[in-house]
């Protein structure tokens, strides 16, 4: 993994980190945040996707 990171350019790394942060954010909001409205809207999907729910 270290070798993998060392051989890529800085701009690639920045793009990849940005994509991962964005992906992480989307999964957290859609799948994990417990705010009532979000929870109710995403309820069935959270169960079906195997996320911890309730």
């Amino acid at each position: 993994m270290t070798a993998l990171v060392q051989t890529v350019s800085k701009s690639t790394l920045l793009s990849v980190v940005s994509a991962i942060v964005l992906g992480f954010g989307i999964i957290t909001v859609a799948g994990h945040v417990q705010a009532a409205t979000l929870h109710d809207a995403a309820h069935d999907v959270r169960h079906a996707t195997g996320f911890p729910c309730h």
Binding site: I20, G23, F24, I26, I27, A30, G31, T49
Partner: peptide, 9 residues
């Protein structure tokens, strides 16, 4: 939405 999140990762 969740699959777009997965796809980004």
């Amino acid at each position: 939405l969740i699959y777009v999140g997965y796809a980004l990762l």
